[in-house]
Design a protein around this nucleic acid. Structure first.
Lengths: 409, 409
DNA sequence: CCATTCTTTGTGGATTCCCACAAAGGCTAG
DNA sequence: CTAGCCTTTGTGGGAATCCACAAAGAATGG
């Protein structure tokens, strides 16, 4: 292709537009409009909105994401054809990623309203993408620096050892706004070691570019840590923020599991705080939710909020106390020993029985035993373990110790 | 009375015996035999055993204590007449305390086997008691020093900041033996401020002189603190030591409440330890039992052992966690608010209901309401508090939070 | 004052729980 | 092999629970 001179990307856009006979938009990696050609034909509504707001509407992006368009663009250096979507006012488009190696720096979009593109035009697009690359590289470097600073700031906040003044100052320079009420959400991602980096990029993309479509009103900061993604969400009002956090995790999982087998393994969020200095607590709590859920599979699958944990919330401190004192419940020990010596299943029976609130029918059905067998075992449990299940305090205690035992492993 | 010369208390004993025409024993404040007269008549079995072991048998002392004899001697400077107790092989006796001011240093015992004492003899006894006092004073000073050292040692052990070597060395010089298994018992005494000192003396007496009659095999150390009595009990075997600790508290209460209105308010004991360095833990636990029992009157009146506390055991750490996080259960809050606004009693209803394991009949009977009223309230509770009492986890959680709330105040 | 809502009490029937007793299957030791 | 113990299953009756519906009393606000 011919060598060519252009002073800025606007000029380049015009040149490409002329050659392809179609309007052009050049966007950076966050779909912010960097340049666009002079309109030849009537632009479609999306093009108008994109140029006016200098950013592709998030609804459109979300739709593209769902359809796998963005993913194709990110993983390929070839032009990708996007059929028109009538309901969004979106005509036919062809796009290509601007990239350096495997890293995507931006996109060139062709609005196919002039003439249909042919195979030869794809070569022009590839050539244009190469030309645009150096300019976007500069932008990217500045952006990455800022992103790194944001992540550093969030880590500083999460670690909890810095003053409010420092935080506010740094936040101001990074133009970050902290909403009045905030909550820390943590998600643990299930993936292979070598996938983790690319997943981070994907998440970055999601959180940066689809902010508006998340259940959160504000989404100022997020970081990654050992297959975990830690996110600060916020709102102007306290009401409903916990619900938003819950649906945010679902949102993340939905966006995420598209295509590959990657999924959020577990997720959790801490309590709502209205002070930046309380964020570390919310963070700790979100991690505790994950830890507890991981240690007790099947107990609280559908609980994500720290305050919905019920008595599980106390398990870490209870476990710590027990370790310090070398405590282990004698009554349960007796049952375990009996089970081992006699091939029994008293412990399991007790667990299921208590898990169903002492309802004989349900329990016996689940264990596939006769209700009288259950009665017999219960009596046995009370006798062997020296447990009085009739006493509510005892019953609650033994129920909790049982769960705590499970957690302790 | 005549001035008289005697080189030691043995000589004095002989002099008194001669004047009274009866055998004499002089004992220190711990009923250890300091001197005795040459036997005139045939000594009764108790006298023989007393002199041979150089100490009054504890069974006899316990009997005297029960009968209030010791108390009379301690609180009066007059001779006290003790009728014979056939079953213990105990003839008639008269005794008088040897005292300096209000402090008892020892006793003179007259075995009334020669001739019956008359009023005039009482004067001789009082005179003899005055004569014996200075010698016993020396003994007492040495004893008190030792007792103080013992108490200091125990405090050192309880505080937990001293090495095992230091402890063993000090224990050796004080000739204290630590049994293989030990437990700390704490009792809180209900008394007026000005009684506390004399109660300490009484307790000292009990623990020093009636060691053998306590349920504990070993009772090496004890101290006092702010109306609390902290006692180290022990045994050579682990089995049954907790039971012994429980009955020790009952024993103490029985001995103690004789006569005056003084009583053990609450008591508790920690876990059994087999290492001196673990004693502080057992101590902390015993205090926690007392604290928990005090904060929740009516819940666990008949529990004294730390490990019998059930989930109450975790309350201190749970409370600490809640305070740190500023947590308070929303569901219970809603009920409290409703009760306040509508003169309701949902919270009380819930508490009683859960305390009786969800048994409708018992609960409604206790609350003096119709069982359908109870049903109505339960539904109301679930509705107002947004609590699903059908779910065992929720139910256990709310039960525990309810108790924790009570404890938290 | 009345109307409305909240709360309590009453009735009745389907279901479940609790318990005692009996019988049968399985495992182990002599 | 058999006796003895542990475990499971079956039967049945009395008590308690759960639930729906109805009516009466108490409290509240207009």
């Amino acid at each position: 292709m011919d060598p060519i001179q252009f002073t800025d990307l606007m000029e380049l856009a015009d040149i490409i537009a002329e050659r392809l006979g179609n309007p052009i938009t050049i966007e950076d990696q966050h779909h912010q409009v960097v340049a666009y050609s002079i309109h030849g034909e009537t632009p479609d509504p999306v093009r108008i909105e994109t140029i006016m707001k200098r950013k592709v509407p998030e609804t459109v992006l979300a739709r593209f994401w769902k359809a796998g368009v963005i993913q194709s663009l990110m993983h390929s250096d070839q032009p990708v054809r996007i059929p028109s979507i009538q309901e969004l006012g979106l005509g036919n488009r062809i796009a290509i990623s601007i990239r350096k190696g495997t890293e995507v720096l931006g996109y060139i979009w062709v609005q196919e309203t002039g003439r249909p593109l042919v195979e030869e035009d794809y070569g022009i697009l590839r050539w244009a993408a190469r030309l645009a690359m150096p300019r976007l590289l500069q932008k990217r470097d500045r952006y990455i620096k800022k992103e790194e600073n944001k992540k550093a700031l969030f880590w500083q906040i999460l670690s909890g050892n810095c003053s409010l003044d420092e935080i506010h100052q740094e936040a101001a320079t990074l133009s970050i706004y902290f909403p009045p009420y905030m909550v820390v959400v943590a998600g643990e991602i299930k993936c292979k070691e070598n996938q983790w980096l690319s997943i981070q990029k994907e998440l970055d993309y999601l959180l940066e570019n689809l902010k508006e479509t998340t259940p959160f009103s504000f989404l100022p900061l997020w970081v990654y840590d050992e297959k975990q993604c830690i996110i600060l969400g916020g709102a102007k009002k306290m009401d409903g923020l916990e619900e938003e956090a819950g649906s945010f995790l679902m949102w993340l999982n939905n966006r995420f599991s598209v295509g590959k087998g990657i999924q959020i393994k577990t997720g959790g969020f801490g309590s709502v705080v209205n002070n930046i200095l309380d964020i570390p607590r919310s963070y700790r709590q979100s991690l505790e939710v994950i830890e507890i859920k991981n240690s007790m599979p099947g107990e609280i699958e559908d609980i994500y909020g720290y305050h919905k944990l019920g008595f599980f919330r106390y398990f870490p401190v209870m476990k710590a106390l027990n370790q310090e004192e070398g405590y282990s419940n004698v009554q349960l020990q007796r049952l375990v020993r009996y089970d081992q010596e006699n091939h029994g299943n008293l412990l399991e029976t007790l667990a299921v029985f208590l898990d169903h609130g002492g309802r004989v029918n349900q329990t016996s059905e689940i264990l596939h035993i006769h209700s009288n067998t259950l009665h017999y075992r219960i009596k046995k449990i009370e006798e062997i373990g020296k447990i009085d299940l009739g006493e509510p305090l005892n019953r609650a205690t033994i129920y909790m110790e049982l769960k705590l035992n499970k957690y302790g492993k």
